[in-house]
Design a protein around this nucleic acid. Structure first.
Length: 262
DNA sequence: AGTACCACCTGACGGC
DNA sequence: TGCCGTCAGGTGGTAC
């Protein structure tokens, strides 16, 4: 699930649970998700540090460690999330890393498919540079958006999903934004006029606002959203027509051929 | 530069 | 019941 709105929800969850707690120890259940470091290094870098601050960029959550501790970077892949619970208690299934905290609670990084990653980051700026992460889709202003997206070649959905161009949008929210903007996902960016680009920008902001308010839960979203109707042959919530499924740059794409023109 | 395709990983689901 | 192919909202590398 983790696209931008989900990570906003995770950040808020983190902020009201583990933030300002001190880590007394870490336990790595599966080192696959920590990639560049060993469990030992993770322990050394995090233990006795407090989680001092958080910030988000696109689908990444960064947790500042106190002192000169640097950052703990979290990416959630397709199936990652956080869970905070009082110990002793059952560590959730598919927990990959657990942070034990000085208040008797623990924060776990859970990730079924292990496509997410945890990083220890010394310099956040260099990390962002390395990954060439674009500006955050929720915070970006129109001028920057028009520059980053409007001047690309290729198709609009691919552009929106490109994390270097703009950080935070994934498969389903790109579909949702284009559905709300009534623009065909295969449209060439070059063929979109200023008004269309502006509409996409406005809908992007509106969709993210609404998704965040709904805590990224599809069942809590407005009935006119495409999100709960992501299946072939489903009824379009706007015109009652039929939702179609196509493949676009390797991802399953849903749209309404009636509502969304090229 | 953009795109298609593959890989990574695990589990759920439908068809036989 | 069991096996198998397919699919899933992530990214990154390859070859064209």
């Amino acid at each position: 699930m983790p696209e931008l709105p989900d990570v906003v929800v995770y950040k808020r969850y983190f902020d009201r649970t583990a933030l300002h707690k001190r880590v007394t120890g870490t336990r790595v259940f599966d080192a696959y998700v920590i990639k560049d470091i060993t469990p030992r290094t993770l322990q050394r870098r995090v233990r006795n540090h407090s989680f001092e601050s958080t910030q988000r960029r696109g689908k990444y959550l960064f947790v500042g460690l106190d002192g000169d501790g640097g950052w703990l970077g979290m990416h959630f892949g397709m199936t990652g999330y956080l869970e905070y619970f009082k110990k002793p208690g059952d560590t959730p299934e598919h927990t990959r890393v657990r942070f034990d905290l000085d208040n008797g609670y623990a924060l776990t990084y859970v990730c079924l498919r292990k496509l997410g990653e945890l990083h220890i980051i010394n310099d956040l700026e260099s990390f962002l540079e390395e990954h060439q992460l674009g500006p955050d889709a929720w915070k970006v202003d129109y001028e920057t958006f028009a520059e980053r997206i409007g001047e690309r070649r290729g198709r609009i959905k691919s552009a929106l999903m490109n994390q270097q161009a703009l950080a935070g949008l994934g498969n389903i929210y790109s579909d949702e934004i284009l559905f709300q903007a009534q623009i065909h996902p295969e449209s060439n960016v070059a063929d979109l006029d200023e008004a269309a680009l502006r509409t996409i920008f406005d809908e992007m902001k509106r969709v993210i606002d609404i998704a965040v308010d709904a805590k990224a839960n599809p069942d809590a979203m407005p009935r006119v959203f495409l999100l709960p109707h992501r299946s072939e042959g489903a009824e379009c919530p706007r015109c009652g027509g039929t939702v179609e499924k196509i493949r676009l740059s390797g991802r399953t794409t849903y749209y309404c051929p009636e509502c969304q023109s090229k």
